[in-house]
């Protein structure tokens, strides 16, 4: 099963594998939400949405439905 950003746990890191380009705003790509970059889930808002990530030094919050369109692989050593 494919893993997406929506499945990360708080504090967990992953590597962006693929983004569904039709569902992702260009702005997010430009902030560094690109394949190969490390991503960390920092905080989950009350009621489980939106999610607050760090990638490419950007601190960014996006909604769950957008997070579901971004595939990731887990790092071997998660911390």
């Amino acid at each position: 099963m494919k893993l997406t950003l929506a499945q990360l746990k708080k504090g967990q890191k992953g590597i962006i594998a693929d983004v569904n380009i039709d569902e992702i705003p260009l702005k997010l790509l430009e902030m560094g939400c690109l394949p190969g970059n490390v991503v960390e889930l920092v905080q989950i808002a009350p009621f489980g949405d939106p999610l607050y990530f760090i990638f490419n030094d950007s601190h960014v919050a996006i909604r769950l439905e957008t997070a579901k369109e971004i595939e990731i692989t887990l790092e071997n050593t998660t911390n």
Binding site: H59, V60, I62
Partner: peptide, 11 residues
């Protein structure tokens, strides 16, 4: 309309 929502959390 698509629910794009991107907020930067500045320092």
């Amino acid at each position: 309309s698509k629910s794009y929502f991107v907020v930067e959390m500045p320092s």
